[in-house]
Structures are given as structure tokens and as C-alpha cells.
């Protein structure tokens, strides 16, 4: 059963593990630095559907079915699925799951959704509420652009701090037993809003939330950043990452070469024209499922802090001039 450790960290003492995972991405993501890491790369990002929203659902379905295959289970065996995405009312997820009769709890955490759903799945299994749980999330560049910014063919310019929504989906199946990656601890994020209003600089809006969650985690566990093989945030991008380093260094917590950001891992900023880096629920999901989990399985990484960050704005709140609340959820993963 889960036990509290310190003020806000939960230890998953029943030893829930990753039983299967899958990452599927679009063409641009498949051509990035993580080429070859994914279960499938779809060159046609319409997924042969009539709308971008349907395409995103199809992408999520691909990740879901592949992760379940890897775990060797069928959808009907799942006790609960935590699913989320960026679209209004989370329709990418709910529409993707129309074909499966799976108990579903929709989640919204913006780009932090992978960590949020994974934490929920881990808690469900750890508490005994579920024998098998899964976490899935997705984002699609075209459906997100349309909802949050402009139509795709509109001739606008992006600012240097803007991030590129990844066309990607990731799914993790959690259960007991086996030799998969262990889900050890979680720290649920708090809303942190430092008054950033620029929707084109979400990294800056989210960095304080990541700093808050990491600080609380290090306090609760009495550890330091250097104690981990990898601390991966997602997706602060170039601006947000440097701000996180600065914020933590002011508290005496130095992030060294073991610190990476999923938004900077998925794309090559020099050649792929993504400005400050990748973003979107699918970004950290694809990096987790395509790169980080396999690296832990192969023994290349032993102790990882996965900290997905979300900018909790809407198109309406941005137009109304509201500042952007950030959130960051942490999941510790070990061999």
C-alpha cells in the first residue's frame, strides 16, 4: 500500500511495475534525434482520417493497442485506464477508446498528462484497486495548432520562445510482478503561477512548477539531484530548462549533465525548426515510452525522475490576458 514520505511524496510500496509500453510518433518526430526508438512512425500524419482530431485519436489507439500487446493482455483485462490529451473535453482520448469497453477516467494535465496518468495508474495498482491499469496520452501538432493558435496554412510567425507540439502518443501498462521498470514514488504537483502571460513562452510559465515539485521531492526523500541517473522534465524547452536550472541553483540544488528535457530530446533544434523545443502531452509520453523506459530495462539507467510539466491555459484564458498556471508531477522509476 502507498505510504506517505515527507510532506507530499508517496512511496508505492506494493511494487507496481511497467508491464508494457509503446510510443508512436509522426514523421517529423521520427526523423529527430530519437529516430529508431519508436514502435511506429507514421509518415502520413492524417492517419488516413478526415480530420486532425480523428487522426490524433487514431494515433492514441495505435499506442494503446501496441502497449497492451507488449504487456500480453487484451483491453477487456484492464481494470482502469487513465487517458488524456490537449483537445477540448479530452475528445482525442474518449473517441479513441470508443471501440473498447475499458473502465476509463479522463485526465487533463496539459503537457504533464503522461506523468499524471502514470501516477494514477501506479496508485490504482499499488492500492489494490486495480490489478492492471494503463496510462495513455497523445498530442497532434495539427489539432493543437488549430485549437490553441491559428489555422495551419495561415501565414504567421512564431516567436523564438514558442514550442512545437509533438505529433505523438505514449501508453504504459502497469501491474504487479514481472521484471519491468518499477514505479517507486510519486509527487503530485501544485499549481504555481508566477505571472507569465506569454502563451508563446510556456517553458517560462512551467519552470517554477517543476522547480517546486523537484524541491519538495528532494526535501521529502532527503536526496540531491546528483543521486539520480536522469532527471527528465517534459517539456520545458530551451527557455524553461535554463530557468529551472537557475531556480533550483538558488536553492542550492544543482542540475548537472544528468538533467535533460523531453522537449529537447525529441527534436533537434538546429535542423528541425522547432524554436525552443517540443511540447504537448505526446512529447514527454513518447520520450518516456520510446527512450527512457527501454534504457532502464536495458540497465543503461537505474534511477530516473520523470517530471512532466503542464501549462494550464486555454485559448480563452490567454485571450482574456490571464497569467498561465503551471504544474509538474513527478514519478520515480527504477530497474
Amino acid at each position: 500500500m502507498a505510504e506517505r514520505k515527507g510532506a507530499s511524496t508517496v512511496t508505492l510500496s506494493a511494487r507496481p511495475r511497467v508491464l508494457g509500453h509503446a510510443a508512436v510518433v509522426g514523421k517529423k518526430e521520427g526523423e529527430g534525434p530519437l529516430a529508431g526508438c519508436f514502435d511506429a512512425v507514421f509518415d502520413d500524419v492524417t492517419m488516413e482520417k478526415e480530420s486532425w482530431e480523428q487522426a490524433e485519436s487514431a494515433l492514441q489507439k495505435e499506442a494503446f493497442t501496441r502497449a497492451l500487446d507488449h504487456a500480453g493482455i487484451s483491453p477487456s483485462q484492464l481494470d482502469v485506464l487513465f487517458a488524456g490529451d490537449l483537445l477540448d473535453q479530452c475528445t482525442a482520448s474518449t473517441f479513441a477508446m470508443r471501440d473498447y469497453s475499458v473502465p476509463l477516467l479522463g485526465q487533463y494535465g496539459a503537457c504533464s498528462t503522461m506523468a499524471q496518468t502514470l501516477a494514477m495508474a501506479a496508485l490504482a495498482v499499488d492500492s489494490g484497486a486495480a490489478d492492471l491499469a494503463a496510462a495513455v496520452t497523445s498530442s497532434h501538432f495539427c489539432s493543437a495548432e488549430r485549437q490553441f493558435r491559428y489555422p495551419l496554412t495561415y501565414g504567421g510567425q512564431r516567436t523564438p520562445t514558442a514550442q512545437w507540439t509533438a505529433t505523438a502518443s505514449g501508453c504504459v501498462v502497469v501491474g504487479m510482478g514481472g521484471k519491468g521498470v518499477r514505479l517507486r514514488e510519486i509527487t503530485v504537483g501544485r499549481i504555481v503561477d508566477m505571472g507569465v502571460t506569454d502563451a508563446n513562452n510556456m517553458g517560462a510559465a512551467m519552470a517554477p512548477a517543476a522547480a517546486d515539485t523537484l524541491t519538495r521531492y528532494f526535501e521529502d526523500t532527503d536526496t540531491r539531484p546528483g543521486d539520480y541517473d536522469l532527471i527528465a522534465t517534459g517539456d520545458l524547452g530551451a527557455c524553461g530548462s535554463s530557468l529551472l536550472k537557475e531556480l533550483l541553483s538558488r536553492k542550492g540544488l544543482l542540475l548537472g549533465s544528468n538533467y535533460r528535457d523531453c522537449g529537447l530530446m525529441l527534436f533537434d533544434r538546429e535542423t528541425q525548426d522547432v524554436h525552443a523545443g517540443g511540447s504537448g502531452c505526446g512529447c514527454s509520453a513518447a520520450v518516456l515510452c520510446g527512450k527512457i523506459l527501454p534504457q532502464i530495462e536495458r540497465g543503461e539507467l537505474h534511477d530516473v525522475l520523470f517530471v512532466a510539466t503542464g501549462a494550464l491555459l486555454s485559448a480563452t484564458s490567454a485571450r482574456q490576458g490571464e497569467s498561465i498556471p503551471g504544474i509538474a508531477h513527478l514519478v520515480r522509476l527504477t530497474k
Binding site: P160, T161, M194, V196, A204, P208, C239, L243, E246, R250
Partner: peptide, 19 residues
């Protein structure tokens, strides 16, 4: 956070690359 929103916004502006 041991940094005020004003200080943070200045820091964020400073670290943002210019067009």
C-alpha cells in the same frame, strides 16, 4: 517560491532569446 513574480518575470525575459 523564494523569488517574487516580478523578479521571476525579469529573469524569464532575460533568458528568452530575442527575435
Amino acid at each position: 517560491m523564494d523569488i517574487t513574480p516580478q523578479e521571476y518575470r525579469k529573469l524569464a525575459e532575460k533568458s528568452a532569446p530575442r527575435s
